[in-house]
């Protein structure tokens, strides 16, 4: 599915890709938005053995609610990132920027993209989408490599907290 407006990111408070949410048969979230690579090709960014995540996914598919990877309601709520007023304002700025860009007013859109980025600095999606729509160096004075270097040890993705994989 194509999500031009980043609607899913707004609804689930996602800030990066790839991000996945596990939803059970009743439509209930059982794992919150988390980094979701299928292998370790980006382990310098994930800092997690992603084969454990995939094994957990298989375990959930096989065992459902009995899987140790299904989080209890309390733990799940603790791990969820909840939208704040700043998040919602960032999303509104981002959407208006997208609208202006789509209407051909791409230079006017940049200010709104920058405000979204300032309000939600942890959102790589706001950064990378805006950079992809213009020249990042020229209009934002940065690029992906510089921004990653500026993390200075801070994880690019929130570290995964996974239980042991069943033997």
């Amino acid at each position: 599915m194509i999500d031009v407006e980043h609607r899913v990111a707004t609804l689930y408070d996602m800030v990066n890709v790839p991000t996945a949410v596990w939803i059970d048969e009743a439509g209930r979230i059982v794992r919150p938005p988390e980094v979701a690579f299928v292998d370790n090709r980006w382990i310098e960014y994930t800092k997690t053995d992603m084969t454990r995540y995939v094994a957990g996914l298989r375990d959930w598919v096989a065992r459902g609610a009995e899987s140790a990877f299904v989080l209890g309601k309390g733990e799940l709520r603790r791990r969820l990132s909840l939208p704040t007023a700043a998040h919602a304002l960032a999303a509104a700025n981002f959407r208006l920027g997208q609208y202006l860009h789509a209407q051909g007013h791409w230079e006017d859109a940049i200010g709104y993209f920058k405000r979204a980025q300032a309000l939600r600095p942890e959102s790589w999606s706001y950064k990378r989408q805006a950079w992809a729509l213009s020249d990042a160096e020229q209009y934002y004075g940065t690029n992906f490599k510089k921004e990653v270097e500026a993390l200075a040890g801070t994880p690019y993705y929130a570290p995964l907290d996974l239980p042991p994989v069943p033997g």
Partner: peptide
């Protein structure tokens, strides 16, 4: 949240943050 571009005569009305948060806390996707 409300964000406007008066020169383009566009106003965008965003989602209420509490509404978004309540939906997530309910754990219903």
């Amino acid at each position: 949240p409300v964000v406007a571009s008066p020169e383009h005569r566009v106003w965008f009305f965003g989602d209420r943050p509490q509404g978004l948060a309540d939906r997530l806390v309910s754990l219903t996707a």
